[in-house]
């Protein structure tokens, strides 16, 4: 689990021995490649950990680092350097994919700050009713369940060669509605991002709680929209 946030412990460069920030892929002093650093995904790109980030800067940094890590550049490097270039590439790709995606970025940063999210908030000892805090409202569950039933009906009808136009219409209407709900959640999340980025401890705490609940809700919606798309072949 990554939890090193601000503690940029200086590490000595293996080549020139100058100490550098632990999360650089290349030594700022002699430019030699470094083994995969500790720290977090943000520091790979030299970004401040925040939910609102400069996506253009992220992309530029990603492309620049990808080029620098290109295998051709290590054709004549030592075996360790070759190995590091592969490991650094893997780290760079993970970091980029996580930070680029608004939902994954949110989950990632909240986890760094100790939030229990997704799989992690269902530990062995947790009694089911303790999960109540993040349980979706009953009406959302009803709708999700109902729509899943309709999807199943639709698939059954399809496989026996029939098509039910009324059902199909119903489903695409439902899909539009759920996509609307997704957009709402995303909008609410963005509001919380700003509260989290700019707030003090109390605001952060409140925003974090709100975001965990929003992400939970978002999972039901994404699941459903994906199912509808798969069934309707969209």
């Amino acid at each position: 689990m990554l939890n090193v946030l601000d503690s940029a412990v200086p590490v000595e460069c293996w080549s020139c021995s100058v100490a550098h920030n632990e999360s650089t892929l290349f030594c700022p002093h002699c430019s030699k490649i470094q083994p995969p650093p500790g720290g977090n995904y943000y520091s790979v790109f030299n970004l401040q950990p925040a939910l609102n980030i400069d996506l253009a800067a992220l992309e530029t940094a990603f492309h620049r680092l990808s080029r620098k890590l290109h295998p051709d550049r290590f054709a004549r490097a030592t075996a360790s350097e070759k190995e590091w270039s592969l490991a650094d590439t893997a780290l760079l790709n993970d970091a980029y994919r996580t930070l680029r995606d608004p939902l994954r970025r949110t989950e990632y940063l909240l986890k760094l700050h100790g939030a229990e999210i997704g799989e992690e908030h269902s530990g062995k000892d947790r009694r089911p009713h303790e999960m109540g805090a993040s349980r979706a409202p009953a009406d959302l569950l009803e709708e999700v369940f109902e729509l899943n039933m309709q999807l199943e009906e639709m698939r059954a009808a399809r496989s026996s060669g029939e098509d039910d136009p009324a059902l199909a219409r119903n489903l695409s209407e439902a899909k539009a509605k759920f996509e609307g709900l997704q957009a709402e959640v995303d909008h609410d999340l963005r509001e919380q991002w700003t509260a989290w980025d700019n707030g003090g401890d109390a605001e952060k705490q409140a925003a974090q709680k709100a975001m965990v609940a929003l992400l939970d809700r978002r999972r039901y919606l994404s699941n459903l929209v994906r199912e509808v798309n798969e069934t309707m072949g969209a």
Partner: peptide, 13 residues
């Protein structure tokens, strides 16, 4: 009983 798992978005009745 209709319940959901927020971890993954799955539902069960």
């Amino acid at each position: 009983g209709l319940v959901g798992a927020p971890e993954c978005g799955d539902v069960m009745r």
